[in-house]
């Protein structure tokens, strides 16, 4: 590792801390590589050699706008895999159809006053949504939202792990994130 990178890590570790009000025993496996704040959003990026976690903390105006954000986010994911129309299509073939193997799998779970909603997916090597076949898959990908009753803080979480990571393993990382807000 270059000296400059080491200094950067030192600086980030010293200044950024944990991601807002989220804590996780498993985050110690990762190093915090970036923290940035834009408007109501604070984003924390954690990395380890074969994985990456993006945690975005959104301080929403109220409960309704928080739920609206979650609903729109979820629809964005669903629509990407929903036999979308092909631009400049032919007269005969016009819908983009994704393989069943890469379709998003929605799950949710409550734990105390914390609510976990998420899709299990696959991403390409550029950590993007929307691949239509396993040939393009490079990572196991969990795209989720964590909310807690009683406040308007929304955590948008994206977890990227090696392709052979099982659902339970990636879910374990997600569920290890506990709200302290």
């Amino acid at each position: 590792m270059k000296p400059r990178s080491l200094l950067l890590l030192f600086f980030l570790a010293g200044c950024s801390g944990h991601p807002g009000g989220l804590e996780s025993r498993l985050l110690s496996d990762y190093r915090l590589t970036d923290h940035r704040k834009k408007g109501i959003s604070s984003t924390y990026i954690y990395e380890k050699p074969e994985g990456k976690i993006f945690i975005e903390r959104l301080a929403c105006a109220d409960r309704a706008s928080m739920e609206k954000t979650v609903r729109e986010d979820m629809l964005t994911v669903k629509m990407l895999y929903s036999d979308t129309l092909s631009p400049y299509p032919g007269y005969i073939s016009y819908r983009i159809t994704a393989d069943k193997s890469v379709l998003p799998e929605y799950r949710e779970k409550g734990a105390g006053d914390t609510y976990y909603r998420y899709f299990l997916l696959y991403s390409n090597d550029r950590l993007s949504l929307g691949i239509t076949s396993m040939d393009a898959a490079s990572h196991r990908y969990l795209h989720g939202w964590i909310t807690r009753s009683g406040n308007n803080i929304l955590y948008r979480v994206k977890i990227f792990e090696p392709l052979d990571t099982g659902s339970r393993e990636i879910e374990e990382i997600f569920f290890s994130l506990v709200c302290r807000d």
Partner: peptide
């Protein structure tokens, strides 16, 4: 390996 009746990959998508 995909049906011709639908588009396998959309060229306008980043992926």
């Amino acid at each position: 390996g995909k049906p011709l009746s639908s588009v396998a990959v959309g060229g306008f998508s980043s992926v």
